[in-house]
C-alpha cells in the first residue's frame, strides 16, 4: 500500500470493496451493496463504482478529521486506490 502507511494505523485504509468499509455495522454492508448496484445500474463498471463509493465515503470521514490528518489521509487514499484497481 505504499511506504507512507507504516507509521499510521488508519482504520479506513484497508478497504478493498465497499462492503468492507462498514463491516462493523451489520445493516450498512447491505447499504454498500445497494450503492454498488445503483452505480452499476447506471452503466459504471464495478471497479469504478467501488472507487467512487470508497472515495465518497472517505471524503465524508475526512471532513471530520483535523486538517493535517485530512491531507495525509487523502494522500494515503490516492495511493491505496491506485493499488486496488486493475
Amino acid at each position: 500500500m505504499g511506504d507512507k502507511c507504516g507509521a499510521h494505523t488508519f482504520p479506513y485504509m484497508e478497504i478493498r470493496n465497499p462492503s468492507a468499509v462498514v463491516e462493523h455495522e451489520a445493516t450498512t454492508s447491505k447499504i454498500a451493496d445497494d450503492q454498488l448496484f445503483y452505480c452499476r445500474s447506471r452503466g459504471v463498471s464495478e471497479e469504478d463504482a467501488v472507487n467512487m463509493i470508497v472515495n465518497g465515503f472517505c471524503k465524508v470521514v475526512f471532513k471530520e478529521l483535523p486538517m493535517e490528518f485530512a491531507v495525509e489521509a487523502q494522500n494515503l487514499l490516492a495511493v491505496s486506490l491506485e493499488g486496488s484497481v486493475g
Partner: peptide, 26 residues
C-alpha cells in the same frame, strides 16, 4: 434503465459526477 423504488443515498459521491460517468459509459 431502472428508476428505483427506493433510490439509495451515496454520501460524498457527487450527484453530477456519477451522472457524467454514467452518461459517458452509455
Amino acid at each position: 434503465f431502472l428508476a428505483f423504488q427506493y433510490p439509495v443515498e451515496i454520501p460524498g459521491v457527487n450527484n453530477a459526477y456519477l451522472l457524467k460517468a454514467a452518461l459517458n459509459a452509455v
